[in-house]
Computed example of a mutant assay.
Amino acid sequence: MTMINEQMRAKIAGGDGFIAALDQSGGSTPKALQGYGVEEDAWSTEEEMYGLIHQMRSRIITSPCFGSGKVIGAILFERTMDGTVDGKPTPQALIDQGVVPFIKIDKGLEAEENGVQLMKPMPELDRLLERAKSLDVFGTKERSVINEANMSGIAVLVAQQFQIAKQVIAHDLMPVVEPEVNIKSADRATSDELLLTAILEELDALPDGQQVMLKLSIPAKPGLFEPLVDHPKVLRVVALSGGFSRAEACRELAKNRGMIASFSRALLSDLRAQQSDQEFNDTLGSAIDEIYRASTTKVAA
């Protein structure tokens, strides 16, 4: 393992701060741009659309507050990883800011079956992992979704997640396993518990010395995921915002010891293309401060 990899591992394992999710892709790109104040008539081709989202991400990554030490990692979309920021490959631009780069590897979700949405096949995954490794990317992230508390559905979903995680580990990259529980589901609390059980079983089956990261919905019952936070085969447990507003997500996250944020919408929701650099940096800075506090200063539930 290279020195840079060891430093990145130490920062992610023990660093104070959170992981920014800058990985909206494909179908969610127009929505992300619209939220940023860029309407669909601003581009006419897919290339132009991706160019606009890359400008937004470059603006975030190069903002002084992004490299303030409060953001310890960032998850990129594949095209962002392959692009450049200030003339450097994006992962290198992040590393120079003291931010550990990750890449989203899933190709989206299958239709719901047994209350869950599995990941679509990833036939090119080995090639993508090799490319990521060559760009000094530290880890990967893959997402699937649990919509209802279906025990067999959840078991299959978690098994798929860990199967992909093992493929990632074989490339000397750190997998971020993301089995998202839909926070709007009626039996969310039961799904959380079934998920915890399924993850613990998969962790026990992992060979000693191997680790994963977990990106989970903030549990309905505060502290539920502490056994995962303390598990020797888990490098770090991060939380997604999952449709909560930033204020709600931060309030709920602060009740969970050892969980840090990996927010996307809740981080970027107040940023607009029309803001001056000063306004943009101030807005991003206050969002970073709020999420940092919820990740590092915990309260009794």
Score class of each variant (00 low, 15 high):
225 F>W: 09
217 S>G: 13
210 Q>M: 13
218 I>L: 13
230 D>L: 13
233 K>L: 04
217 S>M: 10
214 L>F: 12
225 F>R: 01
192 D>T: 07
237 V>I: 04
221 K>D: 13
225 F>G: 08
211 Q>G: 01
235 L>E: 06
230 D>R: 14
201 E>K: 15
199 I>A: 06
236 R>W: 11
227 P>Q: 07
239 A>W: 06
209 G>A: 12
213 M>P: 06
219 P>W: 03
210 Q>R: 07
222 P>K: 01
228 L>E: 11
208 D>L: 11
202 E>W: 00
210 Q>S: 13
209 G>F: 03
239 A>Q: 11
200 L>Q: 15
212 V>S: 10
226 E>C: 09
208 D>K: 15
200 L>A: 13
212 V>H: 06
224 L>T: 13
233 K>N: 05
202 E>A: 04
214 L>W: 11
222 P>W: 02
200 L>P: 00
192 D>L: 07
192 D>I: 01
205 A>S: 15
239 A>G: 14
209 G>W: 06
222 P>C: 03
221 K>P: 00
193 E>P: 01
201 E>V: 12
212 V>L: 05
230 D>V: 02
231 H>T: 03
221 K>N: 14
228 L>R: 05
234 V>H: 05
236 R>C: 11
224 L>V: 07
209 G>K: 04
200 L>C: 12
222 P>G: 08
226 E>A: 09
